[in-house]
Amino acid sequence: MNQSSEFSLRNLLGRIGFWFLILLILFYTLFPFYWAFVSSLKTENEVFQPATFFPENPTVINYESAFQNTQFTQGLLNSTIVSSVSVGLALVVGSFAAYALGRLEFRGKTLMLYAVLAMTMFPQISILSGLFEIVRESGLFGQLSSMILTYPIITLPFTVWTLTSFFKGLPAELEQAALVDGANFFQTFYLILLPLTAPALVTTGLLAFISAWNEYLFALTFTTVNPSAQTVTVAIALFSGRISRQEPIAEIMAASVVVTVPLIILVLVFQRRIVEGLTAGAVKG
């Protein structure tokens, strides 16, 4: 785009070229979903034929068998439980910490801020063996609670960091007014600041939920001995067919579509907020 130095040429072709680029970008981002959707409507046999862009005889049989696969449905349930609990915990505990870091002055604050920031980039893989031992010793190996215990490393620092910046952005007069009216710190927190940050809580919660829902490393490691505690990501990675011995590709695609659709809806609904939440930290730097 920028290369064309001929102004008239730009005017002539600019519009067409621009929309062509937009379509190209959309095609690039969305084609794999289209492919998954098309494949999920094909029969297992058709999937192994040379690729076609439309199914010959669209069928929902793959969705039926995906939902009859207990590993998959159990995985959906497990993921919902684990992600909700760990996000709820992160929001409650994290909003306390964020209030302290965003609104209060105290010695050691800078250090804590750095610690939290460092934690948001913490490589989970490097403590895998330490956590593995802690999980084994506490008897949680192969249980849902092993993930509820460990997911805060993913959700909590992120929650604290994001909410801190939201708390910082609120005007300082709020609390002073509340304090003048005789409210204590906790009343100010619950009655005044928390309602104001509700949109931020929703955004942060959503982002944390997505990262917990998508987690794979811990889920895979801690549930190797107990398939019934697998989350949906592990279930999809280890998907095995009930009938055919061959990898049930169409069924995997149906399951992938099922997992993806709720996320697409969430993203469409909260698009503006998500972008704001994601980029808040990045562009201020």
Binding site: P32, F33, W35, A36, W213, N214, Y216, V232, T233, V234, I236, A237, F239, I252, M253, S256, V259, T260
Partner: peptide, 8 residues
């Protein structure tokens, strides 16, 4: 999930 995109 990365797992889903990997399978796609």
């Amino acid at each position: 999930p990365t797992v889903v995109s990997a399978r796609l």
